[in-house]
Simulated assay, not measured.
Amino acid sequence: MPAPRNPFKHAIARGELQLGCWLGLADPYIAEISAGAGFDWLLVDGEHAPNDLRSTVRQLQVIASRNAHAVVRPPIGETWLIKQYLDAGAQSLLIPMVESAAQARALVDAVTYPPHGVRGVGSALARASDFAAIPDYLTTASDEICLLVQVENRKGLAALDEILAVDGIDGVFIGPSDLAADLGHIGRADAPEVKDAVRDALTRIVSAGKAAGILTLDASFQAECRNIGASFIATDIDVSLFARNMREGAARARDRLSGLGA
Rank of each mutant, 00 (worst) to 15 (best):
R119H: 05
A88Y: 05
A102R: 13
P115N: 02
A110L: 06
A101H: 08
R105L: 11
A88P: 07
G120C: 04
Q91Y: 11
I82T: 08
L94D: 08
M97P: 03
S92Y: 07
Y113G: 03
I95F: 10
P114H: 05
P114Y: 12
D109L: 12
E99V: 14
A106G: 14
G117Y: 05
A106S: 14
K83E: 11
P115G: 02
P115D: 07
L81Q: 11
R119F: 02
M97S: 14
V111T: 15
G117E: 00
A101C: 09
I82M: 04
V118H: 14
Q91C: 02
G89R: 09
E99A: 14
S100K: 12
G117V: 11
D109P: 03
Y85R: 00
A104M: 00
G120M: 01
V98P: 07
E99I: 08
G89Y: 03
D109K: 14
A106E: 15
R105A: 13
T112S: 13
I95M: 11
S92N: 09
S100V: 08
V98L: 05
Y113C: 04
L81M: 13
L94K: 01
T112Q: 05
G117F: 03
V118P: 04
A104G: 06
V98R: 06
A104Y: 07
S100R: 10
A104K: 10
A88G: 13
V98K: 04
V111A: 04
A90C: 11
V118W: 12
A102D: 15
A110C: 04
V108W: 10
W80Q: 12
I95Q: 02
E99L: 00
V118Y: 10
S92I: 11
R105Q: 15
V111P: 07
K83C: 10
W80R: 09
A106N: 13
P115R: 09
Y113F: 15
A102L: 05
Y113Q: 07
G117L: 05
G89M: 01
E99T: 14
Q84D: 12
L86W: 04
R119K: 02
L94Y: 06
H116V: 14
S92W: 09
G120D: 03
S92A: 13
I95A: 00
L93Q: 09
P115V: 12
G117M: 03
Q84H: 13
V118N: 13
A102E: 15
Q103N: 08
S100E: 05
G89L: 08
R119C: 05
S92T: 15
G89A: 10
H116D: 15
Q91N: 05
G117I: 03
T79F: 03
Q91L: 11
S100T: 14
L86F: 08
A104P: 06
L107F: 04
P96H: 07
G120S: 15
L93T: 11
Y113H: 14
M97I: 10
Q103P: 06
H116F: 13
L94H: 02
V118D: 13
Y113A: 13
Q91W: 08
A101M: 12
V98W: 11
P96V: 09
A101P: 11
L93M: 01
A110H: 00
L94R: 01
P114C: 10
L107G: 01
A110Y: 09
G120P: 10
Q103D: 07
Q84N: 14
R119Y: 04
D87I: 02
L86H: 01
I95C: 07
A102G: 13
Q103K: 09
H116Q: 15
A110W: 04
L93V: 12
L86A: 09
V108Q: 01
D109T: 00
